[in-house]
Structures are given as structure tokens and as C-alpha cells.
Design a protein around this nucleic acid. Structure first.
Lengths: 181, 181
DNA sequence: TCTAAGTTTCAATAAATAATGAAACTAATG
DNA sequence: CATTAGTTTCATTATTTATTGAAACTTAGA
């Protein structure tokens, strides 16, 4: 199983972007490879395809599973485990988004919540707390929103997405409606 | 200039989150420190406050400036450079978002665009291209949306944010309106 | 229950990334 | 134009993160 030049280039790109997307090079490559490969792959095929050690693949699989980006499949009569993307591209993007929120926002939100409950003991703390409050509110909003987006049906999302520059108009419209009564 | 325990804890937290937010520990700390400090700070004050080398601060400043998160200020009669956050919390979050889009999405979008223009030469490439097309469309949508959000006035954004779980309703509403004619 | 195909773990090692600090640079001031 | 406060650079060093591969583990089937 050898990759064409184009496909290889894509997989390598995924590797280079890997760390920006929240994992590392190898895991980025694995993810890219599984996405563009029609058939599920064994760990050995992945290791061979990417020229990395079997052990590394095993760790990568664990990580990709913790992100819920891949799933295991079994082929009757075959003892090996086969791996494939755990859903559509859209599903995967959602997972990455969700997982990153968990890692990049939630811990800070928790710290800020605690801080806000306390009473500042001097001017420095007072100013700092105001700033933290602003960050807190911002993150709360982001959190609420992402939860909201998760709740929308795929159709609604599609509709919202297609709205594009219409957002402003819909908002104005909504304001008019709400102001009437 | 010494930090209170609470404020110190916040700054350290920013350090730990730094790499998740797109920079490194030191830069995260610097950013946190500047945010909760009312007065602009000199590079030396930052180095002292965080117990890091002067050279490191200089590099951090350069990086934070490249993200457009801090600005330089001068105090008349003082030759030193003073640094302060370059805007409100909201502004800063926007900058981080924008910058990350540039680093995490744009390069991939560019690669995918190129790929999509080519003609697959076999079945593997055909399947791969379909997948890439999906990723491409998703990223285009995200890009359009973030541009759209940037364009909204702060008030509209506020309004949109407060909408929360009302999004669904507004969407349904919009659909009804649009279907009428 | 023994064998062997397959998988995971983890100590050792390699690679990448960040931090230091001394030297080079810059520019305001006497 | 020499001095010096202040800043930046970058080779060196330290730290962190990723990778390997051999040994341990797991489990299906003989």
C-alpha cells in the first residue's frame, strides 16, 4: 500500500499542521492518512505507510481514540484491529473543537470562577479581578455558544452556515421584532 | 513590584496554558502579567516579576507584538519602553482568534485548493480528493464566518452573543419568512 | 493449557523547543 | 562625538517532547 505523490503530500502537510491542531506530527499524519484512505487500516499498515515505529503508532492510536477521532473495526476471521475515521469530516471537526475547548478554555474558566468569588484585599487585586472578570465573561459566552452550536441539528447548522453575511440582517430583524411589544 | 498570591497564581496559570493558546510558557506568563497590571511595565520589571532573563523578555515582547497583543508606551522624560495590552480583553481574544486562524487554517486551505484543481489519476486519488473537498468546504465556511464576525459591530456581536439558545428560534423564524414568497 | 499473532508499555535515546547571558547594537544626552 | 542607559541578538545550554524497540502483556485458536 503506497501513497501517490499528491496523497503523500497531504499526509505530510497534516503532520506539519499536527502540533498547531493540538496533537503532534505523527498523530497529524496518522489522522490525515486514515482520512484519505478508503479502507480501514491496521496498525502495521499505518507504521509502514508513515515509516514510523509500531510502538509510536500504538500510542498515536490511543491519543486519536481519546479525541474520539478514530474507531476500531474487525474483519471476520481476522484477528487484527482495523482503524478508520470515527465519522464524517464534520463530525471530526466538531470533536477537535470540543476537545480543544476542554483543554484550552475549561481549566482557565474554572480558575477564574474561583478567583471571582474571593474579595480583593488591595487595589492591585481589585484591578486584576476586574480584568479576570472580563476574561471570565468572554469565556463563558464562548462556552455557551459552543454548547448551543452542538445542540443545533445538522440542518440548522447548515442553514446558519449558509447565512454568512446575512447574520447582520437577521440580527437587525430580530431586534425589530423584539422591540415591537 | 511584587504580585499578590492570587495574582501570581493567575500569571502562572497563563504560563501553563500558554502553549495551548498558541505561544509558550513564558509568553503566556508575560501576557497574563501585563493584563492584570494596571500600569504599563518595562522589560526589566517583567523579567524581574517573572524571574526570567532579560533576553527572554525581549523575545517574548517581539512575539506578543507580532500577535498585536501588546503596545509600547513612552513616558515623557523616561528613556525606557513601557508595555501594555493593546486593547480590551475582547480585542485581544479577537487577535488571538484571527492569528490562530492564519496559522491553523489558512495553510491547509491553500493546499486543499491546489489539490482540488487537479484531476485524480486513480481510484485512491479520487477518494482522497473527495475527502479533501469536504475538508476544504468546511474550512471555507469557517473562514467566511470568522470574517463575518469580524465585520459585525461590537453591539451586533453583543446581541448575537446574548442570543444564546435563541439561535435556533431565530433560524426557524428566518426560514419561515424566506419561504413565504 | 500452550502457542503464536497481535498489541501495549516504558526505559532509553533522539529531536525539537525554550532560556540564558554576554556581546553587539541603538540612540538620547551632555 | 563620547558616554551610557536601554534593547536586541544569537551561540550555548537546559528543558521538554517525541520516538524507538525490546520486553511484557493479551487473547484466539489448536
Amino acid at each position: 500500500m503506497t501513497l501517490s505523490d499528491k496523497n503523500f503530500a497531504f499526509v505530510m502537510h497534516c503532520g506539519e499542521m499536527g502540533s498547531r491542531w493540538g496533537f503532534n506530527r505523527t498523530i497529524g499524519q496518522m489522522c490525515g492518512l486514515l482520512i484519505i484512505t478508503k479502507e480501514p487500516m491496521t496498525a502495521n499498515e499505518i507504521a509502514e505507510g508513515l515509516s514510523i515505529s509500531r510502538g509510536n503508532v500504538s500510542m498515536g492510536i490511543k491519543e486519536l481514540q481519546s479525541w474520539r477521532l478514530i474507531k476500531v473495526q474487525h474483519i471476520p476471521g481476522d484477528r487484527k484491529e482495523y482503524y478508520a475515521p470515527a465519522g464524517t469530516i464534520w463530525d471530526m471537526a466538531n470533536r477537535v473543537f470540543e476537545e480543544r475547548k476542554k483543554r484550552e478554555i475549561d481549566p482557565t474558566l474554572s480558575l477564574l470562577r474561583d478567583n471571582i468569588l474571593e474579595t480583593p484585599t488591595n487595589d492591585d487585586e481589585k484591578f486584576a479581578q476586574q480584568q479576570m472578570h472580563e476574561i471570565h465573561d468572554l469565556l463563558e459566552t464562548v462556552t455557551k455558544w459552543s454548547a448551543e452550536l452542538q445542540r443545533l441539528s445538522p440542518e440548522q447548522l447548515q442553514s446558519l452556515m449558509k447565512l454568512g453575511s446575512g447574520i447582520g440582517k437577521v440580527l437587525d430583524f430580530k431586534d425589530k421584532i423584539l422591540k415591537k411589544p
